[in-house]
Structures are given as C-alpha cells and as structure tokens.
Design a protein around this nucleic acid. Structure first.
Lengths: 350, 350
DNA sequence: ATTTTTCTGGAGAACGATTTCCCAGGCGTT
DNA sequence: AACGCCTGGGAAATCGTTCTCCAGAAAAAT
C-alpha cells in the first residue's frame, strides 16, 4: 500500500537506483537486458516518480501559477480553460489564485505561489498601478507573463488583445452603418483594458466626427453601471452606445429596453470580449471577440521559451488582433424615420 | 540573488540549522536570546521556507487538487472561487484541472494530480458511472471529497446541494401559485444532479397532480436544448416549465419569447442553480440558489478533518439545503383570464 | 602488446527542510 | 557529594530524486 520508490524498483530489478533513474528518464544509455528488467519491474510494481522529490532535486516543479482578479468575471473562465489545457499538454500543472479584485491579496497570492516554487507566473493584474510593485518583484524571481492586461511598461512579458484595433473595428462598423452621435460607456479602473479601450475610443471617435466628440461616461466593468450609465447619456440623444465590455453593454441593453428605447432602431449598442452572455442578450450583442485560445497558446509558448533559457531577452509584448462579431444590437436602422426630430440625417432615407 | 536557505540563516545567526528550524517552526522551545537572533537574521535575509523541500520531508504538499468537468459551465466559477478562498485561508493551494466533460481526460487529470502528491482531491465528477473507477482508485490513495455531484455510493465523501428538496421547493411554489399542468425539461446525463432533479420532479409532480403527470423531456444541460425543448412541450399546453438548470431555463425563455408566449402570464418557467445570468434574464428567472459558499466551506472542512487523521471513518454525505429565489418568471398570473380556453381555474379570479 | 578511449554500471553527494538521537550542563534529590 | 532528570543545542539521518564521480571492462588506437 505504501508508495513505490526508485529504491524498491532497483532492488526488484537487481541494480542501483542510478541505473533505474537512467532507464526511466532516458538520461544515459543503459544495456538492453538491464533496461528491460528495470522497465518490467517498474511496470509490475506500478512505480510513479515522486514529483516533489524530483522538483527538489531538479529545481523545477513543473507548476505554473495563475493569478487573476476574479474568476467570476465571465470573461475569465474560458481563458482559464485554454490556459489549463495548454499547460497540461506540456505536462505542467496549474496553481490557481483568485485575488478578489484586490491588489493587496493579489500580492499575497503571488508570494504564496512563489513560496511554492512555481516555475513561472501568469498574472492578470488587477490594477495597472497598484499591482506593479508585486508584479515587478515577482518578475525578478521567475519568468512572468502578463495576460490580457498590462502593468506598467517593461515590467514583464505581455500577451493581450489589441484593444485599440478592436475598438477601431467597432467605430468603423458604426460609421459604416450610419451612426453619427456615438457615446462611450467605459470603466474608470486602472487596468489597461479600461485605459486602452477608452483611449482608442477617443482617438477613433474624434476622427469620426471631429466637431461633435461623443459623450464619455466612466464607471466600472459591471452590469449595474451599464444600467446606470444609460440614464446619464440618454439626454445627449446618441444613436450608438459603445461599451467598454459586454457586461456594461448587457446592462445598458436592459435599461434601454426598460425605457422602451428601440435597439438597434434608435440606438445601437456594442460590447467588448464576447462573453457567452453576449450572444444571448436580446437583442444579441454586437461585440469584439477576444482570441482566447490564441492568447492562452501564445502565453504558454512564451512561458515555455522563457523557461527554456531565454530568460534574459528583452521584454516581449504580443498583441493579438480581435475580431468584430456583428449581431442584432447594431443592425442598420430600417428606414422607419422614427427619430427624424433629433438629428435629421437627410441621406439616410434615400 | 540566489535563494536564501535555512543553512544561511543558521550561519548568519551563529547556530545550527536544527535550531533555526525549531525557532521558525515553533516545534520545540528555544532559548529566548537565540530565538531572537534567529528571527532577526531570517527577517533580515528575507528567508522564505522552500515548500518543496518541506513537502518532501513532511510528506505533505499543502496542495489540494480540484477536478471539474468544465470551468466554462457558469455554475462553477463561483464554486471555484469559494473553494480557492477557503483553501487559501488555511494556507493550502489549489491545483486546478479542467477535464472538458470527458471521463477519460478526467482520469488522466486525476492521476496527474496524484503524481504531484496533492494532499487531497476535490472532484466534481463528470459522469456518475464512467467516473467511478478513477475516483474510487484515487480515493484509496488520498482523502477525496466529491463536490456538487456524486459518483456511485460509498466511493468517497460527498458535499452537495439537496437537489430533492430544491425541486420540492419549486413544485410547492408552482402549486401555491396555481400552476397545474407542469412540464419538466431535464438532462439525460449520468451525473447525479441530472438524475436527482429528475427523480425529485417525478416524485413531486406525481403527488401534485396524480392523474395528469407532467410531460418530461430530456436532453442536456445547455441553452440550445432549452430552446429546442420548448417546441416539444408546447403542444401539451403546460402552464409551467420546470427546468433542470438555469441554462436550460434561459434557453426556454428565449424560445418562448420568440414564439410570443407570455411568461409568466401563460407559462411560468423555473431554473436551478441561480447562476449570474438567471437574475438578468427577461423576465428574471425564478430558480433554486445553491449555497455555494457553504458547499465550499463544508468541503474544505471535511477535507481538513480527513487530513487531520480522520481518514478511516465512514463515508460522509453532506447535503445542504438550497433556497428558492422567486423572480418574475413565475409570478402569479394577473387575472387577465387570457388563457380561459385551456384549463379554467375558477378560483383564480376571485 | 600496451596505451588510450569509450562504455556501462555503482556509490554517493547533493537538493532544503524536518526530526531523531545524542551530549553537555544545571538543577534537584538521596 | 553522587546520581539522575530536565533543558537547550548540535550532528546527522531522512524524504525520493538526479547527477557527478569513479571503477572496471571492453574496444579502439598506437
């Protein structure tokens, strides 16, 4: 019933532990008949190498830590899933830490994982500024890849979606479908997703309609904020509401429906992320799909190359292009001319 | 830059590694002045005990493995979150494994975690039958607690929601609000959640209306099935649709809305789990809230007691009572008498 | 035939902590 | 004063691997 160790396999096959280790690990050539005896004995006894002992000796646990703000954020589960699969495919395991959107616990989780001798860290930082210290000191000790969100510059490698081009896709789409008075509902948070999407919106919106830049409202990445923001932007009579993520957008949709506003007839609504809920909203939400699988694969590969010795190259920053998913919430307006009172756009009822 | 070890602390404080270990671990009393020297040196050097070495010696990694079917199933993230917090609160870490709803990869993940010397396993089994072998053999090696779903009897400890009483709450509620022709949309899967909820429905529905047992349709735990199932039960003109989980229910709501059926006016819809999406559906979904935090806490505590030596007691099975969350989707019908044709219930318009 | 290289296998030292065993004093008892 | 007990501390074994030496034999080169 007790654990089968190398020593027992050695005894059973009549040779030394060194030889057994060599046979099983393929480290050095071993005579064919002894190799066979060893393999048989190991098989027969059901030997499984003790990863802890192996880790102690080889100074590598084969474990990767993943620290994220909140697993309950609906964008993360699919990301976690892909990361887990990518890591398991190379024989590594995933230590998961949820830090409740709090930089302090984030720091605590990071040191806890370092104490456990993780080979590397994947971190989705909570806050661009407040996460920085913990991330930087940790990055000095193990390879670290930031995922989905950045954390200052030059602190660690980064794999993230190209928020700017995603937002540009949204604005082009809205422009192409005749929307002119666009508002933005974003988050005032200090994570890079919030910052970059806002910046990209402002850049794009300015070029879209220079003299009448859209109204910008900032709250947090929540459904409740989406609902509340609608009441604050409605007086500006927008014909499109660009939201910084899908949760906000779904909240906005709910409130608009409650107020009897026609979406997409009067107002188009767009999100960002393409969480599962987006396709199920009513109307289905036009959004920007993050390349989740590719993000995970890229992060895993980058991590792998850092672990394989490329530990001192320059910091890499990989941006993956997202994809626009057009759904009902931004469908072109039927020529109902219902909103002729506010901003008459003569070319729309040709 | 290199790792600070016990030996270095010993040298810096002028005593042996044994003494340092005793001071820091509090294993045995040590003279006050030496203890102080040691603590100062450890602090000054920034000593952090190497958990791998500690694990090898003490035969305990402080790591718990969690194996679940699919992290993307919207019920699981909150459960994972609570489990993670409960474990971290006692200084343990969580190794996460997602097995893609496949019993074969589930078995592979379990052995991978065992090879990593996890102290115990938390498993949400994919399938009551096909998961059994892997779970049973693993349970023979480490403490194991099944979470949310069972896996045969007597295989391992179990902490789960009392599905039967949850379903009973739903049926009582529907009966109390005057629903008579109830249909059930469930899952034909072999996990205990599906089985128990179906069984409880059949028991409760029979006692509710003995001569006209409701129609039962079985598919899987998905939104798509919820949509499809609506078309199959509508010919039976139900006034309530009980769904085995929230995903099915939300799918059903969508299809019913598409067909122009009034919910809850004509038909009430209920779900199970209370995933975040439930409160956001339109109409908001009446459902059964699983006590997620309590499930996690109970599982962690049970695991703790097993790890503390209670390894040979009888298998425990803990069932936690869920809570009915009444929302709009099952509101009592306004006395509009719109459905007078199907099942006239004279007492409802008093 | 002798020297050098290669090749195979074993003995044993790490890895970094915990823990057992042992020893040197200090104190109390007879 | 002698003996035993208790206390505080160090030396060393241990956990299960990996890996570096080292020794002997066989093969190759001189």
């Amino acid at each position: 019933m007790t654990e089968v160790t190398l020593k027992e396999v050695a005894r059973a096959s009549g040779c030394s532990v060194a030889t057994v280790s060599r046979v099983l690990g393929g480290t050095r050539p071993v005579g064919p008949e002894i190799a066979l005896r060893v393999k048989e004995a190991a098989e027969r006894l059901g030997y499984r190498p003790n990863q802890v002992a192996r880790a102690l000796r080889s100074r590598s646990t084969g474990t990767i830590g993943l620290v994220l703000p909140q697993i309950t954020n609906p964008f993360f589960p699919s990301l976690v899933r892909e990361v887990e699969h990518a890591l398991h495919a190379e024989g590594r395991a995933l230590l998961l830490a949820d830090c409740n959107d709090d930089p302090t616990t984030e720091a605590a989780r990071i040191t806890a994982l370092l104490d456990r001798q993780v080979d590397a860290l994947l971190v989705i930082p909570v806050d661009e500024k407040h996460s920085r210290d913990a991330v930087a000191t940790a990055a000095a000790r193990v390879p670290m890849v930031l995922l989905d969100r950045g954390c200052g510059t030059g602190v660690a490698d980064l794999v993230a979606t190209d928020n700017a081009s995603g937002m540009a896709l949204v604005l082009e789409h809205l422009a192409a479908t005749g929307r002119r008075r666009v508002c933005f509902v974003g988050a005032s948070g200090c994570d890079t997703a919030a910052v970059e999407r806002l910046a990209a919106y402002e850049a794009g919106a300015a070029s879209l309609d220079p003299e009448a830049p859209g109204r910008v409202e900032l709250g947090d990445f929540s459904l409740e904020w989406g609902r509340a923001a609608v009441d604050r932007i409605l007086p500006f009579r927008p014909d499109a509401v660009v939201c910084a993520n899908d949760l906000i957008a779904v909240g906005a949709l709910q409130r608009l429906r409650q107020l009897g506003v026609d979406v997409p007839g009067e107002i188009a609504v767009t999100g960002f992320d393409d969480i599962p809920m987006a396709g199920l909203a009513d109307p289905a939400l036009t959004t920007v799909r993050q390349p989740v699988r590719e993000l995970a694969a890229e992060a895993a590969q980058l991590l792998g190359s850092r672990l394989a010795g490329q530990t001192d190259g320059p910091r890499r920053s990989v941006r993956l292009a997202p994809e626009l998913v057009v759904r009902a919430s931004s469908a072109p307006r039927a020529p109902s001319a219902q909103d002729a009172g506010s901003t008459p756009t003569p070319e729309e009822d040709q």
